Simulated assay, not measured.
Amino acid sequence: MIFLQLFYEFFKAGLFAIGGGLATLPFLYDISNSTGWFTHGQLADMIAISESTPGAIGINMATYVGYTTAGLPGAVVATLGLVAPSIIIIIIIARFLGAFSENKLVKGAFYGLRPASVGLIAAAGFSVFKLALLQVDLFKVTGAVADLFNWKAIVLAVLIYIAMKKFNPHPVLAIAASAVVGVVFRFGGV
């Protein structure tokens, strides 16, 4: 049953997350809320790991969630669930695109998908910002505005931004350095 649920949840994410891996984030939050397979904090860690490893973020995350939920077979099932809608849609589009490529409705549909993709990616960016730089749960408890901000993370983000502008390191070095800083300064409860 867990394999069917993994496939179904990631099939939905793959079907509706138009615009790339970051557009899957709202769906991953929904999976987290509805299944309890991972917390929002673990999702932030998965985003960091998926962004720093080769491959598409959505596929990396589906594989990771599937593996942690049901081992290697779960990783395969979740990954297949995520990519199946794309494969099906591409096969259908390839079959009919030539006949409809100049159709005003088809052009309009593709034009209409652009803002939806931007909106999904913007929502994902806001979610990452909220997880990384805000402490909403602590603020709800204390009510102190100063507790709303994760000052350690904000200072680190500013320092990394300055270092990136000044030294312009290779992205692999920047990712590796950020991972080391995260472990050394115990970000994410490491």
Score class of each variant (00 low, 15 high):
Y8S: 13
I93K: 08
I154Q: 09
G21P: 00
L15E: 05
A94M: 14
M1R: 14
S178C: 12
T53E: 05
D147L: 06
Y67L: 14
I93E: 11
T39C: 05
L159D: 06
V65W: 00
A177V: 10
A177L: 02
A153Y: 01
K130H: 12
K12A: 01
V77Q: 02
F38D: 03
S86R: 08
H170S: 11
V76C: 04
K104T: 09
A75E: 01
A13R: 05
V145I: 13
L134F: 06
K130D: 01
Y111C: 15
A153D: 08
L105D: 14
D137F: 08
A99P: 13
M61P: 08
M46F: 07
V77A: 03
S117K: 07
I90V: 07
G143W: 04
D45M: 11
A56N: 14
V180R: 10
V118F: 07
P26S: 07
A122V: 13
V181W: 11
A70P: 02
F129V: 10
A109G: 12
L105I: 15
A146H: 13
L43S: 04
L156C: 11
L148T: 05
K12Y: 00
E9V: 01
Y67T: 12
L105S: 15
V155Q: 01
V76N: 03
S52C: 06
G19K: 00
A62H: 06
F110Q: 07
G108K: 11
E102P: 12
G125L: 14
M46S: 00
T68H: 15
A144Q: 15
V158S: 04
A99M: 15
I93D: 08
L105Y: 15
T69G: 03
I89W: 01
A109V: 13
F167D: 13
V180P: 04
F96K: 12
W151N: 02
L131E: 11
G74K: 03
L138E: 15
F100K: 11
F11A: 06
N168I: 15
A176G: 08
